[in-house]
Design a protein around this nucleic acid. Structure first.
Lengths: 199, 199
DNA sequence: GTACTAACATACGCTTTGTATGTGAAATTC
DNA sequence: GAATTTCACATACAAAGCGTATGTTAGTAC
Protein backbone atom coordinates (compact mmCIF):
# COMPACT_ATOMS: atom_id res chain seq x y z
CA UNK A 1 0.00 0.00 0.00
CA UNK A 2 1.24 3.46 -0.91
CA UNK A 3 0.02 4.87 2.36
CA UNK A 4 2.53 7.31 3.82
CA UNK A 5 2.79 7.79 7.53
CA UNK A 6 2.03 11.11 9.09
CA UNK A 7 5.64 11.76 9.92
CA UNK A 8 6.62 11.17 6.33
CA UNK A 9 4.12 13.67 5.06
CA UNK A 10 5.30 16.22 7.58
CA UNK A 11 8.86 15.87 6.45
CA UNK A 12 7.79 16.12 2.86
CA UNK A 13 5.89 19.33 3.51
CA UNK A 14 8.86 20.87 5.24
CA UNK A 15 11.13 19.83 2.41
CA UNK A 16 8.73 21.19 -0.18
CA UNK A 17 8.54 24.54 1.56
CA UNK A 18 12.29 24.79 1.89
CA UNK A 19 12.76 23.85 -1.71
CA UNK A 20 10.27 26.45 -2.87
CA UNK A 21 11.86 29.00 -0.58
CA UNK A 22 15.29 28.35 -2.04
CA UNK A 23 14.19 29.27 -5.50
CA UNK A 24 11.91 32.09 -4.44
CA UNK A 25 14.52 33.74 -2.24
CA UNK A 26 17.14 33.28 -4.92
CA UNK A 27 14.96 34.82 -7.60
CA UNK A 28 13.25 37.67 -5.81
CA UNK A 29 15.47 38.13 -2.82
CA UNK A 30 14.30 37.70 0.75
CA UNK A 31 12.37 40.95 0.97
CA UNK A 32 10.82 40.54 -2.46
CA UNK A 33 9.59 37.02 -1.98
CA UNK A 34 5.91 36.79 -1.08
CA UNK A 35 4.98 34.08 1.37
CA UNK A 36 1.59 33.74 -0.26
CA UNK A 37 3.11 32.99 -3.63
CA UNK A 38 5.72 30.75 -2.13
CA UNK A 39 3.33 28.51 -0.29
CA UNK A 40 0.77 28.48 -3.07
CA UNK A 41 3.40 27.12 -5.42
CA UNK A 42 3.52 23.93 -3.39
CA UNK A 43 -0.22 23.80 -2.89
CA UNK A 44 -0.33 25.22 0.61
CA UNK A 45 -1.15 28.47 2.35
CA UNK A 46 0.80 30.60 4.76
CA UNK A 47 -0.79 28.66 7.58
CA UNK A 48 1.56 25.78 6.90
CA UNK A 49 4.55 28.05 6.85
CA UNK A 50 3.86 29.70 10.17
CA UNK A 51 3.12 26.34 11.69
CA UNK A 52 6.45 24.84 10.67
CA UNK A 53 8.83 27.78 10.76
CA UNK A 54 7.28 30.37 13.02
CA UNK A 55 7.79 33.25 10.63
CA UNK A 56 9.40 34.31 7.40
CA UNK A 57 12.74 34.64 9.08
CA UNK A 58 12.51 31.12 10.42
CA UNK A 59 12.08 29.84 6.91
CA UNK A 60 15.15 31.69 5.73
CA UNK A 61 17.11 30.28 8.64
CA UNK A 62 16.12 26.77 7.62
CA UNK A 63 17.07 27.41 4.02
CA UNK A 64 20.41 28.90 5.00
CA UNK A 65 21.16 26.00 7.27
CA UNK A 66 20.54 23.56 4.45
CA UNK A 67 22.66 25.42 1.95
CA UNK A 68 25.43 26.05 4.43
CA UNK A 69 25.51 22.37 5.23
CA UNK A 70 25.70 21.43 1.59
CA UNK A 71 28.50 23.85 0.92
CA UNK A 72 30.62 22.70 3.83
CA UNK A 73 30.19 19.07 2.84
CA UNK A 74 31.15 19.58 -0.77
CA UNK A 75 34.09 21.83 -0.05
CA UNK A 76 35.44 19.65 2.71
CA UNK A 77 35.11 16.55 0.60
CA UNK A 78 37.10 18.19 -2.15
CA UNK A 79 39.73 19.11 0.37
CA UNK A 80 39.88 15.57 1.69
CA UNK A 81 40.65 14.26 -1.76
CA UNK A 82 44.05 15.99 -1.66
CA UNK A 83 47.00 14.06 -0.31
CA UNK A 84 48.99 17.16 0.48
CA UNK A 85 47.54 18.90 3.52
CA UNK A 86 48.37 22.34 2.27
CA UNK A 87 46.73 21.65 -1.03
CA UNK A 88 43.71 20.50 0.91
CA UNK A 89 43.33 23.94 2.44
CA UNK A 90 43.85 25.62 -0.90
CA UNK A 91 41.38 23.45 -2.77
CA UNK A 92 38.87 23.90 -0.01
CA UNK A 93 39.16 27.65 -0.33
CA UNK A 94 38.86 27.47 -4.07
CA UNK A 95 35.82 25.29 -3.68
CA UNK A 96 34.13 27.93 -1.55
CA UNK A 97 34.83 30.54 -4.15
CA UNK A 98 33.48 28.41 -6.93
CA UNK A 99 30.46 27.22 -5.00
CA UNK A 100 29.53 30.79 -4.28
CA UNK A 101 29.19 31.41 -7.99
CA UNK A 102 25.80 29.78 -7.71
CA UNK A 103 23.30 32.65 -7.70
CA UNK A 104 21.27 30.86 -5.09
CA UNK A 105 24.17 30.82 -2.68
CA UNK A 106 25.12 34.37 -3.56
CA UNK A 107 21.78 35.92 -2.95
CA UNK A 108 20.65 33.84 -0.01
CA UNK A 109 23.77 33.09 1.97
CA UNK A 110 26.09 35.96 1.13
CA UNK A 111 23.72 38.88 0.68
CA UNK A 112 20.37 38.39 2.37
CA UNK A 113 21.46 35.96 5.06
CA UNK A 114 23.71 38.31 6.99
CA UNK A 115 21.22 41.14 6.72
CA UNK A 116 18.30 39.17 8.10
CA UNK A 117 20.03 36.71 10.40
CA UNK A 118 23.08 38.70 11.43
CA UNK A 119 26.74 37.79 11.39
CA UNK A 120 27.08 34.39 9.70
CA UNK A 121 29.59 33.26 12.28
CA UNK A 122 26.84 33.30 14.87
CA UNK A 123 24.22 31.39 12.95
CA UNK A 124 22.79 28.37 14.72
CA UNK A 125 24.28 26.28 11.96
CA UNK A 126 27.49 27.54 13.53
CA UNK A 127 28.67 28.15 10.02
CA UNK A 128 29.87 24.74 9.06
CA UNK A 129 32.12 26.20 6.42
CA UNK A 130 34.07 27.91 9.15
CA UNK A 131 34.24 24.73 11.18
CA UNK A 132 35.56 22.83 8.21
CA UNK A 133 38.28 25.37 7.60
CA UNK A 134 39.27 25.30 11.23
CA UNK A 135 39.59 21.54 11.17
CA UNK A 136 41.85 21.72 8.17
CA UNK A 137 43.96 24.43 9.73
CA UNK A 138 44.41 22.43 12.90
CA UNK A 139 45.69 19.52 10.94
CA UNK A 140 48.12 21.80 9.14
CA UNK A 141 49.38 23.12 12.41
CA UNK A 142 49.84 19.64 13.84
CA UNK A 143 51.87 18.73 10.81
CA UNK A 144 53.89 21.93 11.16
CA UNK A 145 52.92 23.15 7.74
CA UNK A 146 51.87 26.51 9.10
CA UNK A 147 53.06 28.81 11.82
CA UNK A 148 51.44 28.59 15.23
CA UNK A 149 48.47 30.76 14.38
CA UNK A 150 45.21 31.61 16.02
CA UNK A 151 43.11 28.98 14.30
CA UNK A 152 39.76 30.67 14.64
CA UNK A 153 41.08 34.04 13.58
CA UNK A 154 42.87 32.66 10.58
CA UNK A 155 39.86 30.61 9.51
CA UNK A 156 37.55 33.59 9.75
CA UNK A 157 39.75 35.84 7.70
CA UNK A 158 40.39 33.17 5.12
CA UNK A 159 36.71 32.48 4.75
CA UNK A 160 35.94 36.16 4.60
CA UNK A 161 38.46 36.60 1.84
CA UNK A 162 37.05 33.67 -0.08
CA UNK A 163 33.46 34.83 0.21
CA UNK A 164 34.38 38.32 -0.88
CA UNK A 165 36.28 36.90 -3.78
CA UNK A 166 33.21 34.96 -4.77
CA UNK A 167 31.09 38.10 -4.84
CA UNK A 168 33.69 39.74 -7.00
CA UNK A 169 33.85 36.87 -9.44
CA UNK A 170 30.12 36.51 -9.70
CA UNK A 171 29.60 40.20 -10.28
CA UNK A 172 32.18 40.52 -13.00
CA UNK A 173 31.57 40.47 -16.72
CA UNK A 174 34.05 37.68 -17.30
CA UNK A 175 33.69 35.32 -14.37
CA UNK A 176 36.00 32.69 -15.80
CA UNK A 177 38.92 35.06 -16.06
CA UNK A 178 38.33 36.75 -12.74
CA UNK A 179 38.01 33.40 -11.01
CA UNK A 180 41.62 32.63 -11.83
CA UNK A 181 42.80 35.95 -10.49
CA UNK A 182 40.82 35.48 -7.30
CA UNK A 183 42.17 32.02 -6.68
CA UNK A 184 45.73 33.15 -7.29
CA UNK A 185 45.38 36.01 -4.85
CA UNK A 186 43.81 33.67 -2.34
CA UNK A 187 46.83 31.40 -2.51
CA UNK A 188 49.20 34.30 -2.10
CA UNK A 189 47.42 35.57 0.96
CA UNK A 190 47.16 32.14 2.51
CA UNK A 191 50.86 31.58 2.00
CA UNK A 192 51.33 34.12 4.76
CA UNK A 193 50.42 31.37 7.17
CA UNK A 194 53.04 28.90 5.92
CA UNK A 195 56.28 28.17 7.63
CA UNK A 196 58.40 27.68 4.57
CA UNK A 197 58.12 30.84 2.48
CA UNK A 198 56.65 28.87 -0.39
CA UNK A 199 59.10 28.80 -3.28
CA UNK B 1 19.44 89.08 7.77
CA UNK B 2 19.09 85.40 8.67
CA UNK B 3 17.49 84.65 5.38
CA UNK B 4 18.80 81.41 3.87
CA UNK B 5 18.87 80.92 0.15
CA UNK B 6 16.78 78.24 -1.43
CA UNK B 7 19.79 76.15 -2.32
CA UNK B 8 20.92 76.23 1.28
CA UNK B 9 17.58 74.99 2.52
CA UNK B 10 17.60 72.23 -0.01
CA UNK B 11 20.99 71.03 1.07
CA UNK B 12 19.96 71.21 4.65
CA UNK B 13 16.88 69.11 4.04
CA UNK B 14 18.92 66.46 2.29
CA UNK B 15 21.44 66.45 5.08
CA UNK B 16 18.74 66.22 7.70
CA UNK B 17 17.12 63.28 5.98
CA UNK B 18 20.40 61.46 5.60
CA UNK B 19 21.31 62.09 9.18
CA UNK B 20 17.96 60.79 10.39
CA UNK B 21 18.29 57.81 8.10
CA UNK B 22 21.69 56.95 9.49
CA UNK B 23 20.38 56.57 12.99
CA UNK B 24 17.10 54.97 11.96
CA UNK B 25 18.73 52.37 9.72
CA UNK B 26 21.34 51.68 12.35
CA UNK B 27 18.77 51.20 15.06
CA UNK B 28 15.98 49.34 13.33
CA UNK B 29 17.76 48.00 10.30
CA UNK B 30 16.81 48.90 6.76
CA UNK B 31 13.68 46.78 6.58
CA UNK B 32 12.53 47.76 10.03
CA UNK B 33 12.89 51.50 9.56
CA UNK B 34 9.66 53.26 8.73
CA UNK B 35 9.90 56.11 6.28
CA UNK B 36 6.98 57.81 7.95
CA UNK B 37 8.73 57.87 11.31
CA UNK B 38 12.02 58.80 9.75
CA UNK B 39 10.77 61.85 7.93
CA UNK B 40 8.50 62.92 10.76
CA UNK B 41 11.50 63.05 13.05
CA UNK B 42 12.94 65.90 11.01
CA UNK B 43 9.59 67.60 10.57
CA UNK B 44 8.83 66.35 7.07
CA UNK B 45 6.69 63.75 5.39
CA UNK B 46 7.49 61.00 2.94
CA UNK B 47 6.83 63.45 0.14
CA UNK B 48 10.17 65.11 0.77
CA UNK B 49 11.94 61.78 0.79
CA UNK B 50 10.57 60.60 -2.50
CA UNK B 51 11.27 63.95 -4.05
CA UNK B 52 14.94 63.94 -3.10
CA UNK B 53 15.87 60.25 -3.21
CA UNK B 54 13.34 58.54 -5.42
CA UNK B 55 12.63 55.70 -3.03
CA UNK B 56 13.70 54.06 0.18
CA UNK B 57 16.57 52.36 -1.57
CA UNK B 58 17.81 55.65 -2.90
CA UNK B 59 18.01 56.99 0.60
CA UNK B 60 20.03 54.01 1.73
CA UNK B 61 22.35 54.47 -1.20
CA UNK B 62 22.97 58.06 -0.20
CA UNK B 63 23.61 57.06 3.39
CA UNK B 64 25.98 54.31 2.37
CA UNK B 65 27.86 56.63 0.08
CA UNK B 66 28.37 59.08 2.90
CA UNK B 67 29.54 56.48 5.38
CA UNK B 68 31.74 54.74 2.86
CA UNK B 69 33.37 58.03 2.05
CA UNK B 70 33.99 58.81 5.68
CA UNK B 71 35.52 55.41 6.30
CA UNK B 72 37.87 55.57 3.37
CA UNK B 73 39.04 59.02 4.35
CA UNK B 74 39.74 58.16 7.94
CA UNK B 75 41.43 54.87 7.19
CA UNK B 76 43.54 56.29 4.41
CA UNK B 77 44.59 59.22 6.52
CA UNK B 78 45.74 56.89 9.25
CA UNK B 79 47.69 54.97 6.69
CA UNK B 80 49.31 58.11 5.36
CA UNK B 81 50.61 58.95 8.79
CA UNK B 82 52.96 55.96 8.65
CA UNK B 83 56.43 56.47 7.28
CA UNK B 84 56.92 52.82 6.43
CA UNK B 85 54.83 51.87 3.42
CA UNK B 86 54.14 48.39 4.66
CA UNK B 87 52.98 49.68 8.00
CA UNK B 88 50.71 52.01 6.10
CA UNK B 89 48.89 49.07 4.58
CA UNK B 90 48.69 47.31 7.90
CA UNK B 91 47.41 50.31 9.81
CA UNK B 92 44.92 50.97 7.08
CA UNK B 93 43.59 47.45 7.41
CA UNK B 94 43.46 47.73 11.15
CA UNK B 95 41.62 50.99 10.81
CA UNK B 96 38.94 49.32 8.71
CA UNK B 97 38.50 46.64 11.30
CA UNK B 98 38.23 49.15 14.10
CA UNK B 99 35.97 51.50 12.20
CA UNK B 100 33.61 48.68 11.52
CA UNK B 101 33.09 48.26 15.23
CA UNK B 102 30.71 51.17 15.00
CA UNK B 103 27.24 49.62 15.05
CA UNK B 104 26.11 52.11 12.46
CA UNK B 105 28.71 50.93 10.01
CA UNK B 106 28.11 47.31 10.87
CA UNK B 107 24.41 47.34 10.33
CA UNK B 108 24.21 49.72 7.40
CA UNK B 109 27.33 49.09 5.36
CA UNK B 110 28.22 45.50 6.17
CA UNK B 111 24.86 43.84 6.69
CA UNK B 112 21.99 45.70 5.03
CA UNK B 113 23.97 47.46 2.33
CA UNK B 114 24.98 44.39 0.37
CA UNK B 115 21.53 42.87 0.69
CA UNK B 116 19.70 45.90 -0.64
CA UNK B 117 22.27 47.40 -2.99
CA UNK B 118 24.17 44.31 -4.05
CA UNK B 119 27.88 43.57 -4.05
CA UNK B 120 29.64 46.52 -2.40
CA UNK B 121 32.35 46.47 -5.02
CA UNK B 122 29.79 47.59 -7.58
CA UNK B 123 28.26 50.41 -5.63
CA UNK B 124 28.21 53.76 -7.39
CA UNK B 125 30.47 55.03 -4.63
CA UNK B 126 32.84 52.55 -6.24
CA UNK B 127 33.68 51.50 -2.73
CA UNK B 128 36.25 54.06 -1.83
CA UNK B 129 37.71 51.77 0.77
CA UNK B 130 38.72 49.40 -1.97
CA UNK B 131 40.18 52.21 -4.03
CA UNK B 132 42.23 53.36 -1.08
CA UNK B 133 43.64 49.92 -0.51
CA UNK B 134 44.52 49.57 -4.17
CA UNK B 135 46.38 52.84 -4.11
CA UNK B 136 48.39 51.73 -1.14
CA UNK B 137 49.15 48.39 -2.72
CA UNK B 138 50.35 50.01 -5.90
CA UNK B 139 52.77 52.10 -3.98
CA UNK B 140 54.06 49.01 -2.21
CA UNK B 141 54.60 47.28 -5.49
CA UNK B 142 56.46 50.24 -6.93
CA UNK B 143 58.74 50.20 -3.92
CA UNK B 144 59.19 46.45 -4.30
CA UNK B 145 57.84 45.73 -0.85
CA UNK B 146 55.46 43.15 -2.19
CA UNK B 147 55.54 40.54 -4.92
CA UNK B 148 54.10 41.47 -8.31
CA UNK B 149 50.51 40.75 -7.42
CA UNK B 150 47.17 41.36 -9.03
CA UNK B 151 46.40 44.62 -7.27
CA UNK B 152 42.64 44.52 -7.57
CA UNK B 153 42.42 40.90 -6.53
CA UNK B 154 44.68 41.38 -3.54
CA UNK B 155 42.83 44.49 -2.44
CA UNK B 156 39.48 42.78 -2.63
CA UNK B 157 40.54 39.80 -0.61
CA UNK B 158 42.30 41.95 1.96
CA UNK B 159 39.24 44.13 2.38
CA UNK B 160 37.01 41.11 2.56
CA UNK B 161 39.15 39.64 5.28
CA UNK B 162 39.14 42.89 7.21
CA UNK B 163 35.40 43.35 6.97
CA UNK B 164 34.78 39.81 8.07
CA UNK B 165 37.16 40.28 10.93
CA UNK B 166 35.19 43.35 11.97
CA UNK B 167 31.95 41.39 12.07
CA UNK B 168 33.64 38.79 14.18
CA UNK B 169 35.03 41.30 16.62
CA UNK B 170 31.80 43.21 16.95
CA UNK B 171 29.78 40.07 17.53
CA UNK B 172 32.03 38.67 20.21
CA UNK B 173 31.55 38.98 23.94
CA UNK B 174 34.98 40.46 24.48
CA UNK B 175 35.60 42.77 21.54
CA UNK B 176 38.84 44.18 22.93
CA UNK B 177 40.49 40.79 23.15
CA UNK B 178 39.20 39.52 19.85
CA UNK B 179 40.29 42.69 18.12
CA UNK B 180 43.88 41.86 18.88
CA UNK B 181 43.54 38.35 17.54
CA UNK B 182 41.90 39.62 14.39
CA UNK B 183 44.58 42.20 13.72
CA UNK B 184 47.32 39.68 14.29
CA UNK B 185 45.78 37.23 11.87
CA UNK B 186 45.30 40.03 9.37
CA UNK B 187 48.99 40.82 9.49
CA UNK B 188 49.92 37.19 9.07
CA UNK B 189 47.72 36.80 6.03
CA UNK B 190 48.90 40.01 4.48
CA UNK B 191 52.50 38.96 4.93
CA UNK B 192 51.80 36.47 2.18
CA UNK B 193 52.13 39.35 -0.24
CA UNK B 194 55.54 40.49 0.97
CA UNK B 195 58.77 39.77 -0.76
CA UNK B 196 60.94 39.32 2.29
CA UNK B 197 59.35 36.57 4.39
CA UNK B 198 58.92 38.95 7.27
CA UNK B 199 61.18 37.87 10.09
C1' DG C 1 1.85 90.28 -13.05
C1' DT C 2 1.79 85.93 -15.34
C1' DA C 3 3.73 81.44 -16.21
C1' DC C 4 6.50 78.04 -14.70
C1' DT C 5 8.98 75.07 -11.58
C1' DA C 6 10.92 73.28 -7.26
C1' DA C 7 9.89 71.45 -2.82
C1' DC C 8 7.31 69.65 -0.44
C1' DA C 9 2.28 67.67 1.78
C1' DT C 10 -1.91 64.81 1.39
C1' DA C 11 -4.70 61.03 0.07
C1' DC C 12 -5.17 56.58 -1.76
C1' DG C 13 -4.58 51.79 -3.13
C1' DC C 14 -2.07 47.83 -3.02
C1' DT C 15 0.72 44.40 -1.03
C1' DT C 16 2.46 41.91 2.72
C1' DT C 17 3.05 40.19 7.30
C1' DG C 18 1.58 38.18 11.61
C1' DT C 19 -2.02 36.49 14.42
C1' DA C 20 -6.26 34.66 15.88
C1' DT C 21 -9.44 31.38 14.99
C1' DG C 22 -11.52 27.40 12.69
C1' DT C 23 -11.39 22.45 11.00
C1' DG C 24 -10.80 17.77 9.83
C1' DA C 25 -8.18 13.77 10.30
C1' DA C 26 -5.05 11.08 12.79
C1' DA C 27 -3.39 9.53 17.22
C1' DT C 28 -4.22 8.57 21.91
C1' DT C 29 -6.78 7.28 25.92
C1' DC C 30 -9.81 4.58 28.42
C1' DG D 1 -14.56 1.55 19.86
C1' DA D 2 -16.10 5.87 21.40
C1' DA D 3 -14.39 10.11 23.29
C1' DT D 4 -10.82 13.32 23.51
C1' DT D 5 -6.83 15.46 22.37
C1' DT D 6 -3.43 16.97 19.18
C1' DC D 7 -1.40 17.91 14.88
C1' DA D 8 -1.22 20.08 10.43
C1' DC D 9 -2.86 22.93 8.20
C1' DA D 10 -6.70 26.70 6.08
C1' DT D 11 -9.27 31.02 6.59
C1' DA D 12 -10.23 35.56 8.12
C1' DC D 13 -8.72 39.77 9.92
C1' DA D 14 -6.11 43.76 11.35
C1' DA D 15 -2.19 46.71 10.85
C1' DA D 16 1.68 48.66 8.67
C1' DG D 17 4.35 50.14 5.00
C1' DC D 18 5.55 51.53 0.30
C1' DG D 19 4.90 53.91 -3.87
C1' DT D 20 2.19 56.93 -6.65
C1' DA D 21 -0.92 60.30 -8.08
C1' DT D 22 -2.42 64.57 -7.03
C1' DG D 23 -2.60 68.92 -4.65
C1' DT D 24 -0.44 73.30 -2.85
C1' DT D 25 2.67 76.95 -1.85
C1' DA D 26 6.64 79.72 -2.41
C1' DG D 27 10.20 81.27 -5.31
C1' DT D 28 11.92 82.54 -10.14
C1' DA D 29 11.95 84.12 -14.94
C1' DC D 30 10.48 87.29 -18.10
Amino acid sequence: MTRRSRAEMLKETRANLIKAARSAFAEKGYAGASMDDLTARVGLTRGALYHHFGDKRGLLAAVVEEIDSDMAMQAHEIGQRQTNSWEALMKEGEAYIELALDPEIQRIVLLDGPSVLGDPAQWPSQNRCLQATMTTLERLMDESFIKPVDIEAAARLLNGAAMNAALWVAGSDTPEKVLGRAIHAFRQLASGLRISPDR
